[in-house]
Amino acid sequence: MTDNGYQPKIVGFLCNWCSYAGADMAGTSRMVYPSHIRIIRVPCSGRVDPLFMAKAFEQGADGVLMAGCHPGDCHYNEGNYYAQRRYALMRELLAFMGIEPERFRLDWVSASEGKKFSQVVTEFTQAVAKLGPRQGVRR
């Protein structure tokens, strides 16, 4: 990834209905994106308890990506709105505790947006790689 061979670990929480299908679309369309992301499929972005983000960082993740349906498109109508509020507060809290805000990203990716998914992952992976490994992680 970077010149010194650093390979960032990125955890991606993708909603089953839009973003996971979007990732699938990127795959079936043979789009290329960095393979540092470990995808975890969740029923809805609203399922992502901030605990998951904290746990990912505790276990040594360098970045956490959350992706869900666009506002108004949530399979459960409102899960992504709740997710957004929790995400905003959790990022603020973790940033206050010393994790750079660039290590988080929340984005909306629909099932047809394979291209957007590969772009988001590429951008995010580059941003995280630029920051380098996290300090103070048990390895």
Binding site: P71, Y81, A88, D107, W108
Partner: peptide, 20 residues
């Protein structure tokens, strides 16, 4: 309480934005 409600029009820093 704020985490049990939402405002459909709000953007709290999605798309990689950090100002929220």
């Amino acid at each position: 309480p704020p985490l049990a409600t939402f405002n459909p029009g709000e953007n709290l820093g999605v798309d990689g934005g950090h100002g929220c």
